[in-house]
C-alpha cells in the first residue's frame, strides 16, 4: 500500500518567537526548524503500514522554501522511499488553501491509498490543510486519528473528540490526520541517514502549479499583523509558612479579587 505524507517544516516548539521586520510574520533569523511533531506520527504510521504489508512506498511531500528539503531528508533517513519538494520560490506565507492546492496537485500525479497529515502544523496551528486537501481531491478524510486498523480497501480509525472517540469506517484512498497517541515515531538510524543521501527528491515549482494564492493579492487568508502577547502582571505570592492559612487566603483572592470561583 502506498502512502503520501505531507510534511510541514516549522520552528522548534522550544523556540522563542520574535516578530519579523515586516510586522506580520516571524523573525526567522535564530529559528531552529523541525518536522512538525504531528507529521511524524503520520510518517510513522505510513512506514508501519508498508512494513506490515511487505510492499508499497512512502513518499514525503513538502511545500516551502529550500530549507524544507532538510526536513524531507530527515524523513528519508527514517525510512521514506522518496520525496517531492514544491519550491515556493518568491512566495512567502502561502495560506492554507494555497498549500492544499499545491499538495492536491502533487497527489493527482501519484497513486496512493493513504495521504497522511499531522492534525495540525505546529506554528500556524490551524488544522486546515488535511481536510482542505481531501475536499480538493474529492476524497474522504478522518482527522485526529489515534488508532488505525487497515482492512481490504478500507480502514477503521479511532478519532479523538471531546471526551470520547468516534470510530470511523473509511474507504481508501483516504486522507488521515494523525494525533498524538497513534504511535511512537522512530529515530533515524545511522544507516538510514547515510542511505537518505542517495534517495531522490523530485522538485516542482509552485509557479508551475495551479495555485492562484501564490499571489498575495489572491490569498484567501492573510496575517495582517503579528504581535507578542502583553506581559502578564507580576505574580502575587502567598506566604506558605502555614499551608492551611495560605490556601484560605488564595481562595479568598480567587473569590473576592479575581472573582473566578
Amino acid at each position: 500500500m502506498n502512502s503520501l505524507v505531507a510534511i510541514a517544516y516549522v520552528p522548534d516548539t522550544e523556540s522563542k518567537i520574535k516578530v519579523g521586520p515586516d510586522g506580520s510574520s516571524i523573525d526567522e533569523s535564530d529559528v531552529k526548524w523541525i518536522v512538525s511533531p504531528y507529521d511524524e506520527y503520520g510518517l510513522e504510521e505510513a512506514l508501519k503500514i508498508r512494513e506490515s504489508k511487505g510492499a508499497g512506498t512512502v513518499t514525503v511531500v513538502s511545500v516551502g522554501p529550500e530549507r524544507v528539503k532538510t526536513g524531507l531528508r530527515e524523513c528519508l533517513a527514517r525510512g521514506a522511499d522518496d520525496a517531492v519538494w514544491v519550491d515556493t520560490g518568491e512566495t512567502k506565507n502561502l495560506d492554507a488553501l494555497g498549500v492544499s492546492k499545491a499538495l492536491a496537485a502533487v497527489a493527482k500525479a501519484a497513486t496512493f491509498d493513504f495521504f497522511w497529515f499531522g492534525q495540525k502544523g505546529v506554528g500556524p496551528d490551524e488544522s486546515l490543510v488535511g481536510p482542505m486537501t481531501a475536499e480538493l481531491l474529492g476524497l474522504p478524510h478522518v482527522a485526529n486519528v489515534v488508532h488505525l486498523d487497515v482492512g481490504e480497501g478500507k480502514v477503521t480509525a479511532s478519532r479523538e473528540i471531546e471526551g470520547a472517540h468516534e470510530i470511523v469506517e473509511c474507504s481508501l484512498p483516504a486522507i488521515l490526520t494523525a494525533q498524538k497517541g497513534l504511535n511512537e515515531p522512530r529515530y533515524a538510524s545511522l544507516k538510514g541517514i547515510m542511505g537518505a543521501k542517495k534517495k531522490p527528491i523530485a522538485e516542482k515549482k509552485l509557479a508551475d502549479l495551479d495555485v492562484p494564492e501564490a499571489d498575495p493579492a489572491a490569498a484567501k487568508a492573510r496575517w495582517r499583523k503579528l504581535s507578542l502577547p502583553a506581559p502578564r502582571q507580576a505574580v502575587k505570592l502567598i506566604p506558605a509558612d502555614d499551608p492551611a492559612a495560605a490556601a484560605k487566603e488564595l481562595v479568598r483572592l480567587l473569590r473576592e479579587e479575581a472573582k473566578v470561583i
Binding site: 505546529v122 496575517w223 503579528l226
Partner: peptide
Amino acid sequence: RPVYSGKARAEVDCGAS
C-alpha cells in the same frame, strides 16, 4: 488568533475569499 501556541497573536482577515 493565537499562533505558535499562544507565543504570538496574529491579526487575520479572509483576503480574497
